[in-house]
């Protein structure tokens, strides 16, 4: 039975491993894209512009209130159409194909971004106001305050929360298997159906995910320790 997991043309081992690589690629891209959305969302919520704050609120509420599966389906079936509509605005009239990888990254990135927004917003707010006043008193400009005071501390405060968002993002990529992108879950699903050995393949998929989540937990813990190195402990 274990030969089903072997490498080469007879077994599914290499397919599953390539699936794991794809999962990592999608997760990392989606998480980074989510950070961009998250930073923009947090800026909009804290920026004071009511319209932008409202839009950001709608974004986080809708994405966090609707099943991920629906978000992915909508983008999968509508992604090309929306991109073409945008392209038309810029004067390009042809057909634009958006591949499954891009759709997966954008869909999971949107979801990830909604959670990142809240984490980043909370972290920015956690920076003591007195420090910003002190920086102003020292004559620092807005940009300098952002670079020297706000961003370094926000990153440190946001790190644990972003670690959670990363785990969420990693696990959400399993849902893009419905778009036939060859990540772990898709390969396990195809293999389970074709060999009629569901336990073997879903258990293998579970182990692969556990490895990925454990490794990334360790990485985030290291990063947190690194970020905390200048902080006095009680």
């Amino acid at each position: 039975m274990l030969e089903l997991l072997s490498f080469g043309d007879r077994g599914w081992g290499d397919q599953l491993l390539m699936g794991a690589a794809m999962t990592v690629a999608v997760s990392v891209s989606a998480f980074l894209l989510g950070l961009v959305f998250g930073a923009a969302g947090a800026a909009a919520k804290l920026g004071g512009n009511l319209l932008l704050a409202g839009l950001a609120e709608v974004y986080t509420t809708v994405i966090r209130g609707v099943p991920e599966l629906l978000v992915i389906y909508l983008l999968f079936f509508g992604g090309s159409g929306m991109v073409m509509a945008v392209a038309r605005v810029f004067g390009y009239d042809g057909y634009v194909e958006v591949n499954a990888f891009t759709i997966g990254v954008v869909a999971v990135g949107l979801i990830s971004g909604a959670y990142s927004t809240e984490v980043i917003r909370g972290a920015v707010q956690a920076v003591p106001h007195g420090q910003i006043e002190a920086a102003k008193a020292c004559g620092m400009g807005r940009w300098l305050i952002l670079r020297r005071v706000l961003v370094p501390q926000t990153l440190r405060f946001a790190l644990p929360g972003l670690g959670n968002v990363w785990q969420l993002t990693l696990k959400d990529t399993s849902l893009i298997s419905v778009t036939a992108l060859a990540e772990i879950m898709r390969m396990a699903h195809v293999a389970a159906g074709s060999t009629r050995e569901p336990f073997l393949f879903y258990a293998t998929a579970a182990v692969l995910y556990l490895i990925l989540t454990s490794v990334s937990t360790a990485v985030f813990e290291r990063a947190e320790r690194h970020a905390m190195r200048g902080v006095r402990r009680a």
Binding site: S177, M185, Y202, A203, A205, S214
Partner: peptide, 21 residues
């Protein structure tokens, strides 16, 4: 560790199709 470290989709398939095997 196991249930937080794996996607729910895997858990559902493992319980439904996997255990029934």
């Amino acid at each position: 560790f196991v249930f937080r470290g794996t996607p729910l989709l895997v858990q559902i398939f493992l319980i439904y199709y996997g255990l029934g095997q």
